[in-house]
Computed example of a mutant assay.
Amino acid sequence: MDVYEGRERPLYQRVVDDIIAQIAAGVWRAGDRLPSERALCERYGVSQITVRRALRELAHAGRVYSHHGLGWFVNAPSPPVARFREVTLILPDLDWLMAPLARALNDALGPAHVALRLAFTDGNPETEAQVFKEAIAQGANVLLLVIGGQERQLSQRYARLLAGTELPTLLLLRDVPDLNLPAAILDERACLEKLTKHLLERGHRRLAYAGPDPALVEGQRRYRGFAFTLWEHGLELPLDWVFAGELTQEATRRRFLRVFQDSERPTAIVCATDIQAAEAMSLLRELSLQCPEDVAIVGLGDRDFAPLLSTPLTTFRLDLEGLGRAAAAMTLDLLAGREVKSVAITGQLVIRRSCGAGFKA
Rank of each mutant, 00 (worst) to 15 (best):
A140G: 05
V131R: 10
R152E: 15
H113D: 14
G123R: 01
G123E: 02
V64Q: 10
P92H: 01
S155W: 00
L145Y: 03
L91Q: 03
V142M: 11
E151H: 14
D107L: 09
L97V: 11
F132P: 10
P100D: 00
H68K: 15
E151I: 13
E151N: 14
E151P: 13
A159G: 11
Q130Y: 15
A112D: 12
Q156R: 00
W96H: 11
V64F: 09
A108Q: 08
D95I: 00
G69A: 12
A82G: 13
A129D: 12
R83Y: 02
A135H: 08
D107G: 11
E126A: 14
A137V: 06
A102G: 10
L97G: 03
A115G: 13
R103Q: 08
V142D: 10
G62V: 14
V87C: 08
G123S: 02
P100R: 04
W72E: 01
H67W: 15
W96D: 13
K133S: 13
A129E: 12
G69E: 07
P80T: 06
E128R: 14
A76V: 12
G62H: 12
A76G: 11
P92V: 05
A119F: 03
S66R: 13
R160C: 07
L143D: 13
V146M: 02
Y65R: 07
